[in-house]
Simulated scan of single mutants.
Amino acid sequence: MQSRYQKMVYIDAIEFDNTAGNPQAIIEFTGLPISVEYTNEGVQVRVIRGAYSVLNAKLGELIIKEANGLLRVCTRAELEAEYDLVD
């Protein structure tokens, strides 16, 4: 007989808003170097995970740290559809 189980998983998130102190907060959150770029499409932050591994987040997007430590980017709507705010 098949059974299904659910596990509550906590994640941490930080929004890229390019305000004073926000780039430093992202560095402290990820523990990785970043660069802020001003492109034709707007402002974005690049989290540098390695020589060939970069995470790009546009202005207003969230950088998520999964329970296993992996980083990803999502919008606030995507985050709220999947998770409930704890605090």
Rank of each mutant, 00 (worst) to 15 (best):
R72F: 13
L71Y: 00
I63Y: 09
G60Q: 12
E82D: 14
C74I: 09
V45W: 09
A25E: 14
C74A: 10
K65T: 11
A81W: 09
L59C: 02
Q24D: 15
T75Q: 11
R72H: 11
N40A: 13
S53F: 03
N40E: 14
Y38G: 10
T30K: 01
L62S: 08
I63L: 06
V36E: 12
I48D: 02
D84W: 11
G50Y: 00
L85H: 05
R72N: 08
K65G: 07
A57S: 13
E82M: 15
E41C: 10
S35W: 08
A51C: 05
Y52N: 15
Y52S: 15
V43M: 12
A57L: 08
A20F: 11
A51P: 03
V47D: 01
I64P: 08
Y52E: 15
E66W: 04
T75V: 10
R49V: 13
R49T: 13
K58E: 11
R72C: 14
A67D: 15
I48G: 04
E41A: 13
T19G: 15
V43H: 05
I64C: 02
N18P: 01
Y38V: 06
A25Q: 15
G60I: 06
G60S: 13
T30M: 00
S35N: 14
E37F: 04
L32V: 05
E78L: 04
I34S: 03
G31S: 08
Q44K: 15
L70P: 00
L79A: 04
L32A: 11
Q24I: 07
L70G: 05
L85F: 03
T30V: 01
L59D: 04
L59R: 00
G42V: 00
E82T: 04
N22V: 01
F29T: 10
V54Q: 12
I27F: 08
L62I: 06
A67T: 10
A20G: 07
I34K: 00
Q44N: 14
A51N: 09
L79Y: 00
A25D: 15
